[in-house]
Design a protein around this nucleic acid. Sequence first.
DNA 1: TACATGATTTGTACGGTGTACAGAGAACCG
DNA 2: CGGTTCTCTGTACACCGTACAAATCATGTA
Lengths: 247, 247
Amino acid sequence: MSESGRRRPRGPRRALTENEILDAALSLLDHGPNAASVRAIAARVGVVPNAIYTYFPDKAAVVDALVERLLGEVDHDVFADRAQPWRDRVEALALELRAKLSAHPGAVSLMVGSRMDGPIAQTLTERLLQLLADAGLDPTDAARASYLLFVYIFGSLVLEVADVQQPAPLPAEAERIATRQLAFSARPPDHFPLSAAAAATMAGYISTEQYLWGLRRILDGLTARVAMGRKSVGSGCAASSRPGPQA
Amino acid sequence: MSESGRRRPRGPRRALTENEILDAALSLLDHGPNAASVRAIAARVGVVPNAIYTYFPDKAAVVDALVERLLGEVDHDVFADRAQPWRDRVEALALELRAKLSAHPGAVSLMVGSRMDGPIAQTLTERLLQLLADAGLDPTDAARASYLLFVYIFGSLVLEVADVQQPAPLPAEAERIATRQLAFSARPPDHFPLSAAAAATMAGYISTEQYLWGLRRILDGLTARVAMGRKSVGSGCAASSRPGPQA
DNA sequence: TACATGATTTGTACGGTGTACAGAGAACCG
DNA sequence: CGGTTCTCTGTACACCGTACAAATCATGTA
């Protein structure tokens, strides 16, 4: 509606688009969270630093837009498919978010402190609420549960990228686990017997397996609440043909 | 043991202690996460900036020490009391951590990216593992559960401090809720009906009540797993492969 | 007592950051 | 055409973390 009467603005044509700037920022972020300075971005797209401020009011706006763009890349296919079991849908969303965001560790570091309340984030929230309603949660519980899931997903990501200080893209999962394994077993075992004993598991903290384990415990907690009260959500055990969580 | 043979080092007496530096940093952090620059800290304690580097190798070390100190302030009374019900102990820890850390929002922002693997953090982990063992979890599950809880507690804190961009100490909880309430209800309700309907609950996201609600769902999830015999756990039997008709 | 030693503190300096501000140039309008 | 309005450039400022060398000082030893 406000699109139709669009006329070219007064000045010269812009040399860039917002997306080119975000592209540059994103690729720079793979060299560390601090690598995406305004100057570096500008150099990357071939303008002087201050030209960036014609596209975004300040750097925070660049970060916000970047986060929105990454969120926009998540695949809604399974997540939004109300014919699928709801647990599978949550897992699909969680895995998608992790995949899309942890592919750019620097961006995750930056998004801490971002408000994440753009339209795409809102859409994701809305869909998640829908999903939880499908699962039988009343609106209040659905709202609380959506925040709980958000905290879990986001918290996992933050801790995961904090774990590696490397600028480069995250090393392979197996390698990171081995590194942590070493670090843990180097700790004095007499002072922390349980930690030492759990070293193997703890070394594997940062892994898709642990991520899903935690997510499933949360879903169990939400399910338990539904099962024992509220509506009697009839029958249909999802039983997702997934392999048992035991490794 | 290595303390006994301690002799004064060669040079002049140090003008400060590490703790004074941390005090200064902590009080500066109440004016925003960026307010605790090396220069500002130095000015606060009355030395030239570079003097700080005699006490800490770099700024990251200051942050690490600060985080350790905050963690050291948590009260272990209930948390470590094995006579108490284990859920109460977890809640006590969670509330203590939130209280101690969210009292300094700037510090929370800084601790993102900190490794949090100092001796005090280790002690907390060890105690948490002990607690979960008391709850009946086998060592592997206890390790996973401890990380899950850590993610939840830490993620909640990060999102909470990100929610207010204010430098000052966090406003009262009621006030923050009211502000969010307003912001939410300003969103177009036609595009996000569920979000709009859940606005009241969502405005209250950031609250002790929501914090405990989520924590209890997680504990429920862990408990369910213990209750039904941990090996064979299929999944919480989740229902709803067929969503109800459109809302 | 005198001196060498070594840690502490200072001063200066470098390269980096985000961004405010003034001006040059290009595209549109009347 | 002149005027308006936008984009991009150049310069500049205040701040950041910290490397480096010189100055200061309390000690251990001669």
